[in-house]
Amino acid sequence: MINESVLLESRTLRTSVLERTEVLDKVKALSLLPDGLHVTTAMVAAYFEVGIKTLESVVIDHRDEFRVNGYQVLTGPELTSFKEVSGLNTRAAAIALWSRRAVLNAGMLLRDSKVARQVRTYLLDAETEVRTRPVDNSVHRASWAELDERIDTRITDVLGKTVVPMLNVLIETAGEQRRELISLREDVQEIQLKLVEHDLQLSRLQRGQDVRALTGVIGTIDAMTWKEFELHVAELLRRDGCTDVEVYGGHGGDRGVDITARTADGRTVAVQCKNFAPFRHVLSGEMQKFLGSSKVLHRADVALYVATCAFTRESLAIAAQGGVTAVHRGLLEAWSAGVRLQVLR
C-alpha cells in the first residue's frame, strides 16, 4: 500500500518525517564520531553499503536540502576546533560532517541501497501506523505478533549495538582471522536485515487486523493489498450493474488498465486502481498515461481512475478535459459505503 518512491520524489514529504531518526537504529546500528552527534561521509557510506562517490553524487544533487538538515563541510579553524572538542584524529584539510537528520535524508534519496530501502519502508510504515492506530486506553494482553515484534526488536538492538561494534574492534586488531571476522560481520548484518523484514511484516499484519476491526470503510480499504483493492473495486462495479468485469491483476496484458467491464446499458468501462498512501497525490503524468490507455487503446466510453488518495489540480484538469472520472479518497469511501457512481447510471 505504501509507495516508497514518493519519498524519492517529494522534498516536502521527506521534510515532514525527518524527526523520525530512530528508524536508523531500528534498521541497523549507526556508529557516531566521539562527539556523539556526527558521522563522516565514509561512515554514512558504510551504513548504507554504497560507495562514497555514490553518496557524494546524491549530496551534489540535493546540497541545499542536506545543508538545512545538518550537513556541513569543515575547513581551517572550524575543523581544528572540532577536532579539539570531539577528539577526532584526522589529517584531512576538510571533512564533511553529517547529523542524524542528514543521514536519514540520505536514506530517503539513495535509490539502489538495500539498507536505504529498508529505512524508507520502516519510515513510511511507522507513519501509517500512527495515522491508523485507534485510541485505546484499556489495558490488554500482548498478542503473539506483538511479542514476536518485541523479540525481533530486542535481538536487532543487541546485534547492532553490541555484536557488530565488537566485531569491528576485533577486525581492526585481527591478523590471520581478519577475513573470517569480516565474513562473520556480514552474516550478522544480514541477520539484522532479515529481522527488520520480519518486524515489518508483523507490523503490517497487526495494523491490518486493528484497522479492519476498529475503523470504518476507508480504514478497511487502507489495509488492503493492491490485489485486494482491485477485487474490491471490481465488486463495486458488479454491485452497480456492470457485467463482463475482468480484473487483470498486473499481469501485463491489460494495456495500461487494471479492470475492464461493461455498464448495464452497454457502455465499455476501463478502470485504473491505485491504493496509494493517503498523503500521496495522483500526479498529472499518471493521469495522462491512463487517459491514453483508456481512451486511445481501449476506446472506453467510461474511464475511472480510482485512488485511495487525492489528485493534484493538474491531474484533475486533465481528467476533466479527457473525460476521465477521478474517484478520489472521499468519493471512494462514499462509493464503497453504498452510493452509486453517477457515471455508471
Rank of each mutant, 00 (worst) to 15 (best):
Q201K: 09
I218K: 15
R179V: 15
S99R: 11
V296E: 07
L344Q: 12
V158N: 03
K114N: 05
P34Y: 01
T128C: 07
R185F: 00
E4I: 15
R20H: 14
N69K: 04
L104I: 14
V257M: 10
T12C: 10
F311G: 10
L33Y: 01
G250C: 02
N275G: 08
C242G: 01
E49C: 09
E180G: 14
R207K: 14
V196E: 05
S293T: 05
L8S: 05
A213C: 05
V163Y: 06
P278W: 14
G208W: 00
D148S: 14
A45D: 01
L297A: 04
M224W: 02
T75G: 06
T225P: 04
L316I: 03
P134F: 00
V58H: 02
W226V: 07
V139H: 10
A264T: 11
Q272D: 01
K26P: 00
F229Q: 04
A264R: 14
L193Q: 06
I191H: 01
V44K: 02
G87M: 04
K26T: 09
V17M: 06
R280Q: 10
V302D: 10
A102R: 07
I60W: 01
H251V: 10
E129P: 00
M224R: 14
A234M: 13
E333A: 14
T156E: 02
I151T: 09
G107N: 06
N89K: 06
L205H: 04
G266M: 05
A223I: 06
M43I: 08
G322I: 02
F66T: 12
I2E: 09
R11N: 04
R267E: 13
A223Y: 04
A300M: 10
V271W: 03
A94K: 09
L341E: 03
R111Q: 12
M43S: 11
D199E: 07
V158M: 08
T268P: 01
V6D: 09
G70T: 09
L18W: 00
H298F: 01
A307Q: 12
I2T: 13
P34G: 06
Q321D: 15
W98S: 13
L316V: 10
Y47R: 09
H198S: 15
I52Q: 14
V343Y: 01
V296I: 12
R20K: 14
T156F: 01
E127I: 13
V339A: 12
L24T: 03
